[in-house]
Design a protein around this nucleic acid. Sequence first.
RNA 1: GCCCCCGUCGUCUAGCGGCCUAGGACGCUGCCCUCUCACGGCAGUAGCGGCGGUUCGAAUCCGCUCGGGGGUACCA
Length: 483
Amino acid sequence: MSVRLRVAPSPTGDPHVGTAYVSLFCLAFARQQGGQFVLRLEDTDRARFREDSEQQIYDMLHWLSLDWDEGPDKGGPFAPYRQSERLDTYRPHVDALVADGHAYYCWCTPDRLQAMREEQQKRKMPTGYDRLCYGKTREERAELPGFSDAAVVRMLIPDDAPIAFTDVIRGEVHAPTPDDQVILKADGFPTYHLAVVVDDHLMGITHVVRGEEWISSTPKHLLLFDWLGWERPAFAHMPLLRNTDKSKISKRKNPAARLTWFVEEGYLPEALVNFLGLLGYSMPSGEEIFTFDEMSASFDWSRVNTVGPVFDLDKLGWLNGHYLRELAPDDFVRRVLPFLHDAGLVAHPPTATEQAVLAAAVPEIQPRMKLLTEAPGLLRFLLVSEESFVVDPEAVEKHVVGSGALLAAAADALEPVEVWDTAHVQGAMDAALLEDGLGLKRGKAYAPIRAAVCGSSISPPLPESLALLGKERTLRRLRAAIV
RNA sequence: GCCCCCGUCGUCUAGCGGCCUAGGACGCUGCCCUCUCACGGCAGUAGCGGCGGUUCGAAUCCGCUCGGGGGUACCA
């Protein structure tokens, strides 16, 4: 039988990095086994629902090439894949559980429940529903305080509820004994616990992969599977991604919790996928740089760690630089373009001139970048109009002030250069400024020129930069800097 | 409060009773390359939380302890 896995994000805001993390592992296993990967939207929380969130989830998973076989957008044999569209599906199962005595109605108000829990905590007792409503008719219950008109349905947890299960990643796990969990809310929506069990069964899910935070509610799900007479799926609880302070990764503490952040910051999807794979997982070969296909081919649940990894951006940055350098030149240009456009350095479809400049500059800037966002800084001196060209004040202070003679000598030496390429430019400068000229060391000689022409004390190699810039602009900037 | 999960360099990890004088990667430091910055190469830095067992032998097995995390909702 082929495996079926699913990821089930809630459309409650910006897509979460954990969704991509779990998707990666699900997909790696599903592809290896020749099974399917399903995307299901758990939109049962109407209070936190966000309209645009669904499309963002699609966009981000597509960006990462973590593609699904069935989902709300593409349908499939078990449609619909939005829980809000499956309300009729859950109802009969709730009724059956009530009829079988496994669930009961509860009319307690939120206020009463909260007071009850506070009292339990004060008495150092485990918190849990006290079953005030159990065995009572609506009329009987209405006599008592804390009564609400709209009923919910609760599970009746037996004393001998199964709390142990075999986790694919952790082995034998003992989870807490549950309390009488609500499975149907007053608004008619199922809670996660009911919906996840019904949908996983109906959709033929064989492996439930989710975050470690779900371990404590697994016994509830076990009970539901058993009561409904359904075979239990396998469970794999992934470690939780952490903030630097080790707490569960959160959008408030960590920008990296938002998937869109990686796009904005200039990360490559292939680097993020590789990095996510490195968190909590290791290749049998020991390789740290690997593609999704390589990970999938050798995937093994026993190599998944149980320790929650800190999401450390340093290593991601290194990986990103690596993948950036591997890119074919035209691909590199394609990825860099949106960032240059946002910086106002190129037109929307770039002009032929701009394209030519970029193509020529790629070999110089590609090995020096770690993030796509660094491109505007490195290319500004080549793309900016002469009217807008400015030299960084710090560079002026450090290198240009007092270097008039040197800059003039450089300009004079470059003036007669006929063939404007790296070799000739360097030849002319060196002849005028080094031993046979002003007698300077190359480092001393190039710094002022770099500042005057590139506008910064940091740039690609100087002769290459001047060659790319062209004779006219080089001379103009040199002379302008002399003053 | 109650319950559960987890514990190897700063970070990600290898290790699954002798191959460990604990290996790799990122980071950091130094050197080389060098016109700046990167890239690349070389070297160095740093860890089995603690205490008891089990064993001829423990990073590896057991217990306790400490530490971290998560859950405890009509949120997922």
